Deep mutational scan, measured.
Amino acid sequence: INASIYDEIQQEMKRAKVSQALFAKVAATKSQGWLCELLRWKEDPSPENRTLWENLSMIRRFLSLPQPERDAIY
């Protein structure tokens, strides 16, 4: 996982035409506020920051699903 995940998140929300609230809920079981802060600060993903790493790993797993599967989840 690297910093490009933040751009991938924004691209996916645009592509699927979903809100931050919906993306946060389905991709990371988090709130819109959490995702907003995540995208604002764009912390460097590092395994040392375990909570951030685990949350980004969950999002990465969601983004790695085939597009039709992600669309069905939304």
Score class of each variant (00 low, 15 high):
A3H: 11
A3F: 15
A3P: 06
S4W: 06
S4C: 08
S4A: 04
S4G: 13
I5N: 05
I5V: 07
I5Q: 00
I5G: 01
Y6T: 02
Y6D: 08
D7A: 11
D7W: 09
D7P: 07
D7Y: 08
D7G: 14
E8M: 09
I9V: 07
I9G: 01
I9T: 00
I9N: 03
Q10T: 06
Q10H: 15
Q10Y: 10
Q10E: 15
Q10F: 02
Q11N: 06
Q11E: 07
Q11Y: 08
Q11W: 05
Q11D: 15
M13S: 03
M13R: 02
M13V: 07
K14H: 10
K14V: 14
R15P: 00
R15Q: 01
R15A: 03
R15G: 01
A16K: 08
A16T: 05
A16Y: 00
A16F: 09
A16L: 04
A16R: 03
K17H: 14
K17S: 12
K17I: 00
K17F: 07
K17V: 05
K17W: 04
K17T: 12
V18L: 07
V18C: 10
V18E: 01
V18R: 00
S19I: 04
S19P: 09
S19V: 00
Q20A: 15
Q20T: 13
A21K: 10
A21T: 08
A21R: 10
L22D: 15
L22E: 11
F23W: 01
F23S: 02
F23H: 03
A24T: 08
A24D: 04
A24M: 01
K25W: 08
K25L: 08
K25H: 15
K25E: 11
K25S: 04
V26R: 02
V26M: 06
A27R: 02
A27K: 02
A27W: 01
A27V: 13
A28S: 10
A28E: 01
A28N: 08
A28D: 02
A28V: 14
A28H: 03
T29G: 14
T29V: 11
T29S: 12
T29W: 10
T29I: 08
S31A: 06
S31T: 09
S31L: 03
S31C: 05
Q32S: 10
Q32P: 11
Q32A: 13
G33C: 07
G33I: 13
G33D: 15
G33R: 14
L35T: 03
L35A: 03
L35R: 00
C36F: 10
C36I: 13
C36A: 13
C36D: 15
C36M: 14
E37T: 10
L38Q: 05
L38H: 05
L38T: 09
L39H: 03
L39S: 01
L39R: 02
L39V: 06
L39G: 02
L39D: 01
L39P: 01
L39C: 02
L39I: 06
R40S: 12
R40G: 06
R40N: 10
W41T: 12
W41C: 15
W41Q: 14
W41G: 13
W41F: 13
W41S: 13
D44K: 11
P45R: 01
P45W: 00
P45S: 04
S46D: 10
S46N: 08
S46M: 11
S46P: 06
P47H: 15
P47F: 08
E48V: 12
N49G: 05
R50K: 15
T51F: 05
T51V: 15
T51D: 05
L52Q: 15
L52A: 11
L52V: 05
L52K: 07
L52H: 11
W53C: 07
W53G: 06
W53K: 05
W53L: 11
W53Q: 07
W53F: 03
E54F: 12
N55Y: 13
L56G: 00
L56V: 05
L56P: 00
S57R: 09
I59P: 06
I59F: 05
I59Q: 02
I59R: 00
R60A: 09
R60T: 06
R60L: 01
R61I: 06
R61V: 07
R61Q: 11
R61H: 14
R61G: 11
F62S: 00
F62Y: 04
F62E: 00
F62K: 00
S64I: 05
L65W: 00
L65R: 12
L65E: 01
P66H: 04
P66E: 11
P66D: 15
P66F: 00
Q67S: 14
Q67W: 08
Q67I: 12
Q67A: 09
Q67D: 06
P68M: 11
P68W: 07
P68I: 15
E69S: 08
E69Q: 10
E69F: 05
E69A: 07
E69N: 08
E69M: 09
R70G: 00
R70M: 03
D71S: 06
D71H: 09
A72H: 10
A72V: 12
I73V: 12
I73T: 10
Y74M: 05
Y74A: 02
Y74F: 07
